[in-house]
Simulated scan of single mutants.
Amino acid sequence: MAGEADARVTVSAILVNWRQPELTSRAVASLERQTGLAERGLDLAVVIVDNGSGDGSLALLRERHPQHLVIDGGRNDGFGAGVNTGIRARPADVYVLLNNDAEAEPGFVAALVDELRAAGGTGNDRRGAVTARILLAGTDPLLVNSTGNEMTRSGNGRDRDWLVPAADEHRPAGEVMGFSGGAAALDARALDDVGLFDESLFMYYEDTDLSWRLRRAGWSIRYSPDAVVHHAHAASSGTGSDVFRFSNERNRMLVALRHAPAPVALTAVARTAAGTLRALLAVARTPSPEHRADARRRLRSFGSALRLTPANLALRVRIDRAARVPRRAVAAFLVAE
């Protein structure tokens, strides 16, 4: 980003669609209603990446949004791959991420960029990412979805302030361990430094992985309470779906092995193994279709994680060699289960 007050700042807002064009169009419309851009010198472009929906979504989105860049991702390689495609297609100073099942309030983009640029990106406060205040759409009373990502001392990644009543959540702008990929801003210089999302994770934990990499490289991650979105949680994938559970179980273990202190990583492995064992014992006691399906999925996720463990341990070594910040400094953000 340019450092002069009157310089233009290019912003690419990226949305990833997979077979949900109606949701995506509502998210795009919310970005078209953004305020406070001109006075801040922000040039906002919207990029929509269709992850190989194959259901007519691509043509429909191109017809509805001819003023925006709509990209054919070719196939569904996951959320991170879709975002990476959008970043490469429309380079900018700042990348804003918005889930396609979320709608942003009018000051969302301006608030994210204000917080990202506040320290000028120099000195000891190089701001690499800012995470938004994500509220759960349709809840009464209104509940919080996320004020950033955090990791527990057992390696579990989760949304900070999950299901806290919005009326009771008054956190000021400040440091968080990680950003939520559902609504955040990323500084292009930080991504040039540490790389884009890891596409091998496919979906879930890719934002936690990138947050660790940013922090180990000396970039800070902040929370902006003024950047607000309303999110229909997991409307695209479903929290009870097989792919959701498989990805969470596998990636929790892999990201802990890559980044967390050894006791945390070992606990994550033990938890995944214990969950698999419990599922197998449940089948032995009650061989119902539900128990069999759960055991098969857990065996697949644990087996996949085990196969990928050597590569992730090697990645851990490479991250350590390149790191500017010790692991213990990032681990100070870990919270109790």
Results as ranks from 00 to 15, higher is better:
residue 108 F to Q: 06
residue 318 R to M: 03
residue 263 P to A: 08
residue 78 G to W: 08
residue 277 L to Y: 07
residue 79 F to I: 09
residue 273 A to S: 10
residue 317 V to P: 00
residue 334 L to G: 02
residue 282 A to M: 13
residue 67 Q to Y: 01
residue 312 N to W: 09
residue 13 A to M: 07
residue 167 A to V: 15
residue 179 F to Y: 15
residue 242 D to H: 12
residue 162 W to D: 00
residue 53 S to K: 11
residue 202 F to H: 15
residue 46 V to K: 07
residue 78 G to D: 02
residue 54 G to R: 06
residue 290 E to K: 15
residue 216 R to M: 14
residue 175 E to A: 07
residue 170 H to E: 07
residue 31 L to Q: 05
residue 218 G to S: 03
residue 80 G to C: 02
residue 148 G to H: 13
residue 105 E to P: 00
residue 242 D to K: 13
residue 298 R to W: 05
residue 18 W to L: 12
residue 169 E to P: 00
residue 87 I to N: 00
residue 19 R to N: 08
residue 303 G to Y: 03
residue 73 G to D: 10
residue 266 L to G: 03
residue 231 H to A: 00
residue 326 P to I: 04
residue 317 V to Q: 12
residue 262 A to D: 14
residue 317 V to F: 04
residue 212 W to R: 05
residue 233 H to K: 03
residue 152 T to C: 07
residue 227 A to D: 01
residue 94 V to C: 04
residue 145 N to A: 05
residue 186 L to W: 02
residue 37 L to R: 03
residue 21 P to M: 07
residue 252 R to G: 15
residue 134 I to M: 14
residue 130 V to G: 03
residue 102 A to W: 01
residue 241 S to K: 06
residue 89 A to E: 12
residue 272 T to D: 07
residue 127 R to L: 11
residue 265 A to Y: 10
residue 213 R to N: 06
residue 50 D to N: 14
